[in-house]
Lab assay of single mutants.
Amino acid sequence: MPSETPQAEVGPTGCPHRSGPHSAKGSLEKGSPEDKEAKEPLWIRPDAPSRCTWQLGRPASESPHHHTAPAKSPKILPDILKKIGDTPMVRINKIGKKFGLKCELLAKCEFFNAGGSVKDRISLRMIEDAERDGTLKPGDTIIEPTSGNTGIGLALAAAVRGYRCIIVMPEKMSSEKVDVLRALGAEIVRTPTNARFDSPESHVGVAWRLKNEIPNSHILDQYRNASNPLAHYDTTADEILQQCDGKLDMLVASVGTGGTITGIARKLKEKCPGCRIIGVDPEGSILAEPEELNQTEQTTYEVEGIGYDFIPTVLDRTVVDKWFKSNDEEAFTFARMLIAQEGLLCGGSAGSTVAVAVKAAQELQEGQRCVVILPDSVRNYMTKFLSDRWMLQKGFLKEEDLTEKKPWWWHLRVQELGLSAPLTVLPTITCGHTIEILREKGFDQAPVVDEAGVILGMVTLGNMLSSLLAGKVQPSDQVGKVIYKQFKQIRLTDTLGRLSHILEMDHFALVV
């Protein structure tokens, strides 16, 4: 994948999101292997301009796509893939009243899908469409860049269908997702969380590099694949309309690839034109409109599966009536509230959605109805927002919020430890010299600072030695090549209790 991002070429006709291997024109390309080798690009942008032909009021008969309808489940399912879809609609009884809503608040519980998330729908649909058009064949390999849930859905379907599955996901995604993927037989590649989507090191860039190296491999490409919004247009939206008897006044959905909100909203605009569509985008993402909503100094966020630093091709923002931004604290607070007060075992993005819903639905009156999409299960986040310690460490809970008995030293300040200034190293000294210094002084790690004293990161003896043994660096290389740029900081005025929580999850903390 090139470091400079080429513009994806656009073909003359058809839909841009065809499933299957992508040609340089962004659509299915038939021909000899030699032709494909000559024409197939190194990668295709996940934010390529959409060429979708959908228009409100256009006859369904003019759609270029294969459409399906929700099917009634048999008493005995032939395999677990038949437990994807037909998820329950559940009334939220307490939270709406707590925040003064007059309307009825309903939750579409997508964590009841077989793999635990709304992404099971698009995973199965992308595979079925690729099999139907002859792209996927027995023994082929599926590769997908994902925040985890699409990966789980694909790995689940691949396990049943017999495909090899490789999932490329950023490091910030939970260990629970990784464990589930491994249990399903998927191979996992992790990428830096802070890598831009168009960087060769991003999950998108690495996935395309693997595709170019592995024979008979395919990126189904949830960011561009029409099967993504079509899955929701054909099934999720129809289920909502049936469950609500066609009567709903507002739908609120958090947005990642945009397939969920695009597919549902398009069908609702056709069948229930008075329904307002509300999009939820986390602070630090750029999906919301108008652009002024996205202006923030924050560039990272903890909530998973929603928000991006690019506009995915499948996201149709014209069908969203209003956007709201959400933050991590309210997302996790509301997710825990949904679990504790409503018994809905949902993930953090569901918290984002409901946090926005109780604001947006203030305009609705008694007798009206708001539906929220709860995308995934708490299963993926047992060591994250479900953990009091994690919430404390991230600053989303305060010590006084917890009532468990603490040891005698818990409320003492870090400054009472009488710490001395640490050994520091410059980023320009060599790895070999740094190892000598650390061994001589008896230290395992040291902060790396520039000549102005600005902290650049941390270097550890173990990481340097393993990097040297693996051949990633040489003793003569500058130590700046092996620094940890993500590390926890703590102030002298913070409590030892807070430091204790940090050290339970990290090997060190830097006192500043």
Rank of each mutant, 00 (worst) to 15 (best):
E239T: 05
H67N: 04
V206K: 04
I84Q: 07
C15T: 11
S175K: 08
G115F: 07
H232I: 04
C15L: 10
G134M: 06
P49C: 12
K108I: 00
P88D: 04
M89N: 00
N194G: 02
P12C: 04
S199C: 09
G11C: 07
V180H: 03
P70H: 09
G153D: 04
K75Q: 11
S227M: 09
L136H: 01
T53F: 04
R196L: 13
K94N: 13
R224P: 07
V168Q: 03
K75W: 12
T193A: 13
R196V: 03
F112D: 05
D47Q: 06
I76T: 03
V160A: 11
K30H: 09
M173G: 03
S123A: 09
L181S: 03
A157D: 10
H66I: 11
E62R: 04
K119P: 01
P49L: 07
H218N: 13
I166T: 11
T262Q: 01
G258V: 00
S147Y: 00
P33L: 07
P49V: 11
F99N: 09
E37N: 11
P145A: 07
G263E: 00
A69F: 14
S227P: 08
A8V: 15
E176M: 03
K36P: 10
D86R: 10
D238P: 11
P215C: 01
R51N: 08
G115P: 07
V10F: 13
P215F: 15
K94G: 14
F197L: 09
G26E: 10
K119I: 02
A158K: 02
L268V: 07
E201F: 13
R45P: 10
E4S: 13
L184I: 14
I261D: 01
H218W: 10
H232D: 03
I188W: 04
T257M: 01
E104R: 03
A114K: 06
G263I: 00
E171K: 09
L184P: 01
S19Q: 11
A60G: 04
Q55K: 13
T141A: 13
I95R: 04
P88K: 04
R91E: 09
T262K: 05
P59A: 03
L181I: 06
A237L: 02
R209Q: 14
E128Y: 00
P200T: 08
A237M: 04
A157I: 06
G258M: 00
P200G: 08
